[in-house]
Design a protein around this nucleic acid. Structure first.
Length: 582
RNA sequence: GCGCUCCUAGCUCAGCAGGAUAGAGCAACAGCCUUCUAAGCUGUGGGUCGGGCGUUCGAAUCGCCCGGAGCGCGCCA
């Protein structure tokens, strides 16, 4: 059950359209583009007129006349070429607001076709430091995970580690080159492991024989060489430990910690299935599957490389089979940047060809890369990428400057201040990322992740903190929650904005686009701030009005808190301020 | 060369199942703290929506062409 104001309007419109023999496909309203003229508008008359070759204003007038009679509608007008502008009665909006306040889901409905969805995001690699390039996938994925759950779907989130490719052979080769053997591997921590990887990476770029060694070791590792396996286990578990720390700080969560290596056995099965179906062939020593090239040229999928190791596409294909077999997933969604678009096109096509996951919806949500000022994927000045840890610390430092020191405020010792710092810093970072539409990517500006004014996470947290403060004061002054009365324009605007929640969540869900929620959340916080400035609770003209405003304020707080939750952001109870601040 | 994505205010971006004066944030400028937290609010200035052609009563939104940017294109993942 959702509490959209549009529902009643739409069904009223359908009745009017049917009565007049008009195609009810166009019988719907949307939030008005002209809030000065109306709350909602219906553009159906324009579309109908085009088809029927009639005067749009005539059709619009016909509809408007019928709408006038409806009791919850305040005013209807036909404007411009044939827009139908509708204003609702205040009492109707107020009642709806009361219902929202009483509803535990705040007026937001669930999806009709609940299903099971596997989300594949994060995708960190063993032995590689997590950097800002890893931010988007994790942050977006976490938000989608929460949205999916909230709308009623069953969700399984898989981090899907990169733990099975040539980089594994590269790092083992590098360690052997340095130590002469793998005896010391288990004493290495993540910093040392990362160092080895960096050196391996440089070496393999310059030295073809080093690359050759790495490939050989990779193939043997995959083949089951016990010595390599044992060393690799250590690299893997050390990496996971470090990765978990990073994700924990950002509140990015997973149900599964699968990796490419977990698909190894299934990879073998896939190769067999492909052979049986006769879709694979040997070409230049590799076992490949050719793809349709009718619409555009596409390289074939290399299942088994000429050295016997599995190609990375095969692990993704095998993983889909596993998710289908083990979880009977209805939908699998991947979140990676646009550079992997072709990869997933190929993978999905092979899955289809082999029939290993029938009726599973496979989606690749492509997002833009995090770019530097030069428009290319972000690199720091020294050519590296900024690691995630540094970014978080930097943002925290900025937050600390605006907070009181531990002990300065009663009840806020070191632990509490540190928690506040992290909540605000993480909000700044995540919101900064999430407010961008997925596809477009963004320019990485270090300062943006430590900004707390304007369209930022802390701005929204601040609005929530102010409401909490009002609620505390109201309680102390004996003001209770009451029925919503819409008197001031700021109250009305706020109530209308609140009523959009269901549509916002559903759109974000359908489009897999958290920025829709981010945008709305900021909008609502802004609308609230205007209301807050104009409509005092404590000094309201009457007790009824004070109670009404209190209900509105609390509802706003609850909606904002829920929206932040869906973005993966926490809302602190208070936002403290350092002495020297404002 | 082929394919994908993109080009909107000084900067970073929304808007794009065609519609009424193209919106935010930042930056700039002018106001607002004996009144519920000024991480806030109010207001001002700023745009030939990359260029052209077309479809349409109507195009930032759809189609084609051109220009510019980024990414990808068989044994890296």
């Amino acid at each position: 059950m959702n509490l959209l104001l549009e529902n009643e309007l739409n069904s009223a419109l359908v009745a009017v359209f049917e009565k007049n023999g008009l195609d009810k496909k166009f019988a719907f309203v949307k939030v008005s583009d002209r809030s000065d003229l109306s709350d909602f508008q219906c553009n159906g008359a324009l579309a109908l007129a085009k088809i029927a070759h009639k005067n749009p204003r005539e059709i619009a007038s016909l509809i408007a006349e019928e709408l006038q009679k409806i009791d919850f509608i305040d005013a209807v007008s036909v404007d411009g070429p044939g827009f139908i502008n509708i204003k609702l009665k205040n009492e109707f909006i107020a009642q709806n607001t009361d219902k929202m306040a009483a509803d535990e889901r705040l007026g937001c409905g669930e999806v009709d076709d609940k299903h099971k969805v596997v989300l594949d995001y994060g995708g960190p690699n063993v032995a590689k430091e997590m950097h800002v390039g890893h931010l988007r996938s994790g942050v977006i994925g976490e938000s989608i995970r929460r949205i999916e759950k909230f709308v009623g779907n069953e969700v399984i989130a898989d981090v899907h580690l990169g733990d099975w490719g040539t980089p594994m052979g590269m790092i083992l080769a590098e360690i052997i080159k340095t130590d002469g053997n793998l005896d010391k591997v288990e004493s290495y921590d993540i910093a040392q492991i990362t160092e080895f990887y960096k050196r391996a990476n440089i070496r393999c770029k310059e030295d073809e024989t080093a690359k050759e060694d790495a490939r050989k070791i990779t193939a043997e590792l995959q083949g089951g060489n016990p010595q390599y396996r044992k060393a690799w286990q250590h690299l893997r578990s050390e990496s996971i430990k470090a990765i978990k720390e990073n994700y924990e700080q950002l509140d990015v969560n997973f149900d599964l910690w699968w990796g490419e290596s977990d698909a190894h056995e299934t990879c073998g099965e896939i190769v067999k299935i492909a052979r049986e179906k006769g879709v694979s062939e040997i070409d230049e020593g590799a076992e490949i599957i050719r793809l349709e090239e009718s619409n555009k040229p596409k390289p074939p999928v290399i299942m088994v490389k000429s050295d016997g190791a599995f190609g990375y596409q095969l692990t993704d294909i095998a993983t889909i089979k596993m998710r289908y077999d083990e979880f009977s997933a209805d939908e699998i969604v991947y979140f990676t940047d646009s550079r992997q678009a072709l990869h997933f096109e190929q993978v999905f096509e092979v899955v289809e060809k082999l029939g290993i996951a029938p009726n599973v919806k496979l989606k690749h949500i492509v997002f833009g890369t995090v770019n530097g000022a030069d428009g290319k994927p972000f690199k720091t000045r020294d050519g590296g990428v900024m690691n995630l840890e540094t970014l978080i610390e930097m943002s925290k430092d900025k937050v600390r400057q605006s907070l009181p020191k531990a002990g300065e405020v009663e009840g806020y010792g070191e632990k509490e201040i540190e928690k506040l710092t992290s909540q605000i810093a993480v909000a700044a970072i995540k919101f900064q990322d999430l407010k961008n539409t997925i596809v477009s990517g963004y320019i990485f500006e270090l300062d943006d992740f430590a900004k707390f004014e304007g369209k930022t996470g802390p701005y929204i947290q601040y609005a929530i903190a102010r409401i909490n403060s009002v609620l505390r004061k109201a309680k102390a002054n004996g003001i209770n929650f009451g029925k919503v009365i819409l008197q001031a324009p700021e109250e009305r605007t706020l109530a209308l904005k609140l009523a959009q929640i269901h549509n916002v969540v559903m759109r974000a869900h359908n489009e897999k686009e958290p920025s829709i929620i981010a945008d709305y959340t900021y909008n609502l916080a802004q609308t609230f701030s205007t209301f807050y400035n104009a409509c005092s609770v404590m000094n309201a003209e009457s007790a009824e009005l004070a109670s009404s405003r209190l209900t509105l304020a609390k509802l706003v707080r609850d909606v904002l808190t829920l929206m932040l939750y869906l973005l993966g952001i926490e809302a602190p109870e208070v936002m403290l301020k350092a002495e020297n601040q404002g």
